[in-house]
Nucleic acid binder design. Sequence first.
DNA 1: TAGGCCATCTGGTCCT
DNA 2: AGGACCAGATGGCCTA
Length: 335
Amino acid sequence: MLTLPFEESQMMCEPRFGANYPRESLPESLEQERKHNSDRTNSDMREAGDDISDREEDEREDERDDDDGLPKKRGPRKKKLGKEQMDRSKLRRNEANARERSRMHGLNAALESLRKVVPCYSKTQKLSKIETLRLAKNYIWALSETLSAGKRPDLLAFVQTLCKGLSQPTTNLVAGCLQLNARNFLTDHNGEVMFSGRSPYDAMYPYPGSDMNTPPGHSGTSLDSSAKPFRHYSYSGAYEPYYENPSPESGSPHFDGQLSPPMNFNGIFSLKHDDPPDYGKNSHYGMRYCSAPGRTALAHNSMYRVSPEARFPYDLHVRSQSFQAQGEVNGSFHN
DNA sequence: TAGGCCATCTGGTCCT
DNA sequence: AGGACCAGATGGCCTA
């Protein structure tokens, strides 16, 4: 169960690493932006101000005497630099700025790749940096709990964990990605997310009477038989439950009585990439996500879908290619 | 218009 | 000495 507290201070502290992010690995757009920005840096704008001589600076500093109550600056006085030294200093400062930009671009690229592997990736509605980190932390925590439990997780707790500490818009986004009605999430004044509606588990396990519908130890509402799901197969062959004529009373996943697009599990259980996945270079992803007992490692460069016979969370369907139709479905979920 | 988010510059600190 | 890292400051952009 998801009961242990997880402090950001514990989980977010990490050793310094990745200092030497290769510049050539920067996304092209970032490189272009870098060039563009370097043409109009603030340093250029402030260049004129930098021309103040050190003597003038010293004079101003002398003026700032004890009269104003502020102590004089301690430490060695600034050396007076010659013109060549000043030029050199400026050059080094510009180089440092460029390195700093490059470093931040690397950081942002890493963050972008993180966005793509946490639930609710959207190109158009990007999670902020802080929200991405929070969601990633929650996601890791929830998955860890799932693995350690060794059984189907309580989806409600899973979603609650995912949304813990997230802003309301992000919570709504996550809920939307999971096809939950955002109205069923109540965020109290402490930022804790509560759920007041029917369990989203029913959306995950739609077959009345089947063990997919009634996970062990789960007391959620069962489906009304009038809401008959039929199997919807995407081009990839993955199963996606789909409902006809749902109603709020029926206990179906469609709270607004509207026909919703096919449920898929990309929100939580699969990796998705609008761009050609580069995980071939990072094969540990496959190992990490497919390390369930008794399962062989899935090939990298894959997306994992829940198969019709899936027993969450370990029976994941390998999708070796990304089809357009699925991309559209994903788009509807992630935009 | 205020607030959030972001990119960038900058100077300081730490490390090699 | 020089590079990486960090945090504060600043200004731009966007949205409610």
